[in-house]
Structure formats: C-alpha cells, structure tokens
C-alpha cells in the first residue's frame, strides 16, 4: 500500500511575457511506506515544485497527489498534519531561540502544552541541540540552523518527511549528521522523500530514485532497476545518459546540471 501517490501532477506558472511555463509536466509515482525516495535532477527540473505540491503548499494545475489517504488538493490541512516539510532555503526567526521556535510550531500543529514540552525536549535530545537550544537563532552556525530546521519539520511527529535539498551548503561534518539522522528516521519507520543533486549521496541513502528533468519524470526505480534499464553502473552515468537523450528531444535545448 503506497503512502504517497502522485498522479499526473502538473503545475503551470504564468510568466511576465504572457506565456505559461510548465514547471512540472505530468509527473506520476508511488512511494511505499517506510522507504527513502530520492528525487534527482538539475536545477530548474521541477523537484521543488513537485515537493511543494505534495506538501500542499501550492495547488496543482491538474492531476492529484494522495498522502496517507488524503487528497492534497482537496484537504491540504489533513495532509499538512501528517507531513513534515523541510524547505530548501529555510529561514529561522532570528530573534527567537531554537527552543522557542520549536514550541511555536508545536502549538501551531495543535499540540497541547504538556505534549509540546515533551516533544520539544525530545527533539532537542534527538538532534543533540542542547548546546545551542537557548541561543538566539541569529547567532547559530549553518549546521546548527539546519538541525533546528529539521527539528522544526519533525515537531508535529509526521509520518512522512519531505526534505527539499536537506544537505545544500553544509560542511562535511554537518552533512554527516543530517544523513545519519535521515537513516535513523528511516529505521524508525518514517517515509522520507528528499530532493538533491548530490548523486553519490542519493546512491548511498535512497531506496528508490526518481530522475526528473524539464518537469518530466525520466526514469524511476531502485538503483538496480535503474542500472538494468540503462546498462550503466554509476548513478552519474545513468544520469548523463538519460538526460543526454532527453536533451535531444528538448526543443528549447534545455541545459544539463
């Protein structure tokens, strides 16, 4: 029973010169509960837009997405309750401490006061945030901020975690912490869908991978399935081969990453 189902998702944006841009153009996939799904593609491929539609942040122009039995378009609030969403360029409230931010979001998710405290303490333990939990966010390092953001995404105890570029711009050490965390969440039965353009990272951590380009899902499957279909060994080679073909079809001559 897939916990996430995207069916022919499409999103078109008007552009200032009066035309429509199809950022996502008929993407369909299914994700089984308890797996890590990686969405890979160059910049501007439509990864972020796809994730935003899954998270109910923007409405699809057509098509539908079902998460945990709720239709995202029809019932975005039910969906938002069951997911945690980590955005790419996450901002934090500079004048609040991580603890205060977590408390704030816990209340927004409708947690009762005693449950809020419990949950916030647990997350600070879980992500080892004790050393900076009570400092103002303005004074934190990039890695500390990213941990705070992840804790924020987890505060509603979601069953699905959507992470848009979770390791973007992090140093090796912080990167390691985040990947370890994703594995731990996975071990606890969470379903995780993440987008990235670090290929080796996706190769090591994801159960299934979807390759997206020009708003279309080009290929999808486990690492083995992708290798079998393309005849290439490394993900980077598969990536280049697929997108090389795609580029020939792309009349706009779209770029590669």
């Amino acid at each position: 029973m897939p916990i996430i189902r995207a069916n022919q998702l499409r999103k078109s944006f008007p552009t200032p010169n009066g035309t429509l841009k199809h950022a996502v153009d008929g993407v369909s996939f299914e994700i089984e509960a308890g797996t890590i799904y990686g969405l890979l593609g160059p910049n501007g491929a439509g990864k972020t837009t796809t994730l935003r539609m899954l998270g109910g942040l923007i409405a699809p122009t057509s098509g539908e997405a079902i998460i945990d039995g709720h239709n995202v378009g029809e019932n975005p609030f039910a969906v938002k309750h069951s997911i945690g969403f980590l955005t790419a360029n996450t901002g934090l409230y500079q004048r609040l401490s991580p603890r205060e931010i977590l408390q704030y979001f816990a209340r927004l998710y409708g947690l009762a006061p005693e449950r809020t405290k419990e949950r916030v303490d647990h997350l600070i333990d879980w992500l080892d945030m004790h050393s900076f939990a009570d400092l103002r966010c303005g004074a934190l390092s990039t890695g500390q901020k990213q941990r705070t953001s992840i804790a924020r995404a987890l505060v509603g105890d979601p069953i699905v975690l959507i992470m848009d570029e979770p390791t973007l711009g992090l140093d090796v050490l912080s990167n390691r912490i985040i990947l370890d965390f994703i594995r731990r969440e996975h071990d606890h039965g969470k379903t995780i869908i993440l987008s990235t353009h670090y290929l080796d990272e996706a190769e090591t951590i994801c159960d299934r991978i979807g390759l997206i380009h020009g708003g279309k899902l080009m290929a999808e499957g486990t690492m083995e399935e992708l290798q079998a279909a393309s005849g290439e060994e490394k993900l980077s080679a598969i990536f280049l081969k697929l997108f090389g073909e795609a580029q020939g079809e792309d009349e706009n001559g779209r770029l590669l990453a």
């Binding site: 998270g55 942040l57 609030f77 039910a78 938002k80 309750h81 969403f85 955005t87 360029n89 996450t90 901002g91 934090l92 409230y93 500079q94 979001f105 927004l108 998710y109 409708g110 953001s149 924020r152 995404a153 509603g156």
Partner: peptide, 14 residues
C-alpha cells in the same frame, strides 16, 4: 524576505 514564510505555510494553519 527572511525565508520564514514558507515554514509557516507548511503548517496546518489557514
């Protein structure tokens, strides 16, 4: 501008 709006919209709050 600070990028915190998106984290708010993610929450189940109308």
């Amino acid at each position: 501008e600070r990028g915190t709006l998106e984290t708010l919209i993610v929450c189940p709050v109308p």
